[in-house]
Simulated scan of single mutants.
Amino acid sequence: MKIGILQCDHVLEKFQPEHKNYPEMFINLFSKVDPTLSFEVFDVQLGEYPTHIDHCDAYLITGSRHGVNDGHDWIDTLIDWIRVLHQQRKKLLGICFGHQAVATALGGQVIKSPKGWGIGVSKNRIDESRPWMTPEKDRLNLIVSHQDQVIKLPEGAQVLASSDFCPYYMLQIDNHILTVQGHPEFSKAYSHDLMENRREIIPLQCIMEGLASLNSEVDDIEVVTWMVNFLRHDDADVTSGH
């Protein structure tokens, strides 16, 4: 299976020697789960897209420091592309900004949350289980880094995981789209450096709580296993619950 990574941002250059760039983070993590996967990267900020939608078997939209409501032309183009992917029922994963972009493209709403920043390790409950969600869990811990949140669901979305802070944390749309607010690709070390780098824009109490939360276990491998299972499942299997 070939996954097209639609890259929506770059890791700051000063962090890349230690933490790599976003595509490498995803490739390294997904390859741990399934080394047979292949990848191709498209920098959508530069207008890079496959020449044909079937060039890849599935697509993944990365996170970004930008918000879906920032008004950049490249975001408008990405939104249009998401709608085409949905119409063609191509398998699609959305991570953080990607999660929000999918929601926006398909009729949902995203705003800068009045609850403030979500940083560090987020703790969520599993609201709906699916056959591809193995190993089975009733909680989901992932690193987060966001201000924006989905506040209105896109059409046909099912909430698979949530928290009081982020009610629409993981969504499934029909049998071909899976999105999550968290960052399975982020290491704790990168999350730490990102928080330290943003001390001037994030309240101190939030920073301290975020740094302390990094002592919690994270379910990065489990979530990526779910994602690979989701991409490989037939339509009939994905839509049936248990």
Rank of each mutant, 00 (worst) to 15 (best):
L92R: 07
C96S: 03
F97L: 10
G98V: 02
A101F: 05
A101P: 11
V102H: 13
Q109F: 09
I111L: 05
K112S: 15
S113A: 12
P114A: 01
W117Y: 10
V121M: 04
I126A: 07
R130W: 10
P131N: 08
E136N: 12
D138W: 10
R139Y: 10
L140W: 13
H146M: 07
Q149M: 08
Q149D: 14
V150W: 04
K152A: 15
P154Y: 09
G156S: 11
A157H: 03
Q158R: 02
A161L: 03
S162V: 03
D164I: 04
F165T: 04
C166Y: 01
Y169M: 10
Y169A: 11
Y169S: 13
M170N: 04
N175F: 08
N175H: 14
H176K: 00
Q181P: 06
H183P: 01
P184D: 15
F186I: 04
S187D: 11
K188I: 01
S191L: 04
S191F: 03
L194E: 01
E196R: 07
N197T: 05
N197P: 11
R199N: 05
E200K: 06
I202P: 00
I202G: 06
P203F: 06
L204P: 02
L204D: 12
L204S: 12
L204E: 14
Q205M: 10
C206G: 08
A212I: 05
A212G: 03
S213E: 02
N215L: 09
D219V: 05
D219T: 08
D220R: 01
